[in-house]
C-alpha cells in the first residue's frame, strides 16, 4: 500500500467514524463535532490528493473548508442556543415538534 492510499484509507475511515458518530450520538453538539470530523477527513483526502498530483488546488480548498467550517460552527452553535432556549434541551430526540 502506497502512502497515498494509506492516507486516503485513513481519510475514509475518519469519514466513516464521523458518519457513525452523527448517526449514533444524540447530543447536537457532539453530532456537530462528528460532522467536523467528517470535514477534516475530507480535508485529509484533499491534502493527500493535492500532494499526489503536485498541485496546490487541493490544499487551497482545505483552507476554504476550514474557513467555512468555522463559519458553520459559529452559526451552528448560535442555532443550538436558540433551540436550547425554546426546548430546554439540545438532545436530538427532544426536538421533533415538526413531523409528518
Amino acid at each position: 500500500m502506497s502512502l497515498t492510499e494509506a492516507y486516503l484509507s485513513l481519510s475514509a475511515i475518519m469519514f466513516g467514524i464521523g458518519t457513525l458518530g452523527v448517526l449514533l450520538r444524540k447530543n447536537t453538539i457532539v453530532i456537530f463535532m462528528c460532522i467536523e470530523l467528517m470535514l477534516n477527513a475530507v480535508n485529509l483526502s484533499f491534502v493527500t490528493l493535492s500532494r499526489e498530483y503536485g498541485q496546490v488546488d487541493g490544499q487551497v480548498y482545505v483552507f476554504f473548508v476550514m474557513a467555512v467550517a468555522a463559519a458553520e460552527a459559529s452559526v451552528g452553535l448560535a442555532i443550538i442556543m436558540t433551540v436550547f432556549r425554546n426546548f430546554y434541551s439540545i438532545e436530538t430526540e427532544d426536538v421533533h415538534d415538526l413531523q409528518g
Partner: peptide, 12 residues
C-alpha cells in the same frame, strides 16, 4: 419553537 427546530434540522 418551530423556527428554531427547523433551523437546527436544516443546519445539522
Amino acid at each position: 419553537r418551530a423556527s428554531s427546530e427547523g433551523a437546527l434540522k436544516y443546519f445539522l
